[in-house]
Simulated scan of single mutants.
Amino acid sequence: MSGADRILILGGTGEGIALASALTSLPGRRVISSLAGRVANPKLPPGEVRIGGFGGVEGLAAYLRENKIRAVIDATHPFARRMGWNAAAASQTTNTPLLRFERPAWMPQPGDHWIDVADWDEAVNVLRGKARRVFLALGRQELAPFTALKDIAFVIRAVDAPDADLAFADAEIVLARGPFKLADERVLLQSRGIDHLVCKNSGGDATDAKLQAARELGVTVIMQRRPPRPDVPKVSDVQAAVDWVRSL
């Protein structure tokens, strides 16, 4: 690579920030991080930042052409399924190299009691008639299916406050951003008498303490498995991504 090659990072994750920090230190690279804008006050990575969608595959392809993007790194959340497929299609259309940076998924450990589900409707069916006090560690935009469970008390943790019109019969809102400490997660589960935890298999270290606490306390975990992603080159550490950029 030569000159000020533009590297587009599809970010919004801790990995995206780490990648931007590493790549901005490389000579001859101009790093642009794109954030979806779903969080009110996101933590911004170094380098240039754009916030908002592209307008689907065609919009992203147009952006890659117009901005002469040399390479794309998809460091979006493992559950950002649409962006992953859009990135693969736009990169193929424009012949732009694409790398997927993906944190390893969590795996159940001895002592865990996990129930895998494909979506939140399935999670609701699992909880119905079995759970009494449930900790929802989800994004605020994914809470609506659980409002159907009127006989369950919920503790809901999110970065931003959920919509006020969500009709939960009994819900406590906890606004917080990870990483979370094991001791604090243990206190949260114990003090609220949580018997079920609902979360996505996001992977990573920032929010896995809740799983350790659930294991210690015998709390059942309803785990949404990851959606399929396109088959593209993939790495799971920053140095491998930096090496990939250097090799272009």
Results as ranks from 00 to 15, higher is better:
183 A>W: 11
110 P>N: 14
34 S>E: 04
215 R>W: 07
29 R>I: 06
222 I>Q: 01
111 G>E: 07
192 R>A: 14
224 Q>H: 12
87 A>V: 04
108 P>V: 13
60 L>P: 01
209 A>V: 09
83 M>G: 05
145 P>W: 00
83 M>N: 08
238 V>A: 06
188 L>P: 02
186 R>P: 03
229 R>G: 09
192 R>G: 09
139 G>K: 07
76 T>N: 08
178 G>R: 04
166 L>G: 06
53 G>N: 08
160 D>Y: 11
38 R>V: 14
188 L>A: 09
15 E>L: 02
166 L>I: 06
69 I>C: 01
53 G>L: 05
112 D>Y: 08
79 F>K: 05
134 V>L: 02
107 M>V: 15
14 G>W: 00
160 D>E: 12
58 E>W: 14
1 M>T: 10
85 W>C: 07
193 G>V: 06
75 A>S: 08
94 T>A: 06
229 R>M: 12
236 S>P: 08
185 E>D: 15
79 F>Q: 05
127 L>A: 02
23 L>Q: 03
44 L>I: 15
15 E>I: 01
77 H>M: 08
166 L>T: 07
244 W>K: 09
11 G>N: 04
137 A>T: 08
129 G>W: 03
46 P>C: 11
122 E>R: 09
3 G>S: 12
169 A>T: 00
103 R>Q: 12
21 S>E: 15
208 D>G: 10
7 I>Q: 01
31 V>D: 00
247 S>Y: 15
155 V>D: 00
10 L>M: 09
105 A>L: 12
18 A>H: 05
115 I>Q: 13
76 T>H: 08
117 V>S: 06
216 E>H: 10
213 A>M: 06
64 L>R: 02
211 L>K: 04
133 R>D: 01
29 R>H: 11
190 Q>I: 10
66 E>L: 11
9 I>C: 02
119 D>P: 06
223 M>I: 14
144 A>P: 01
69 I>A: 01
87 A>Y: 01
63 Y>Q: 06
180 F>T: 00
203 G>N: 12
119 D>C: 12
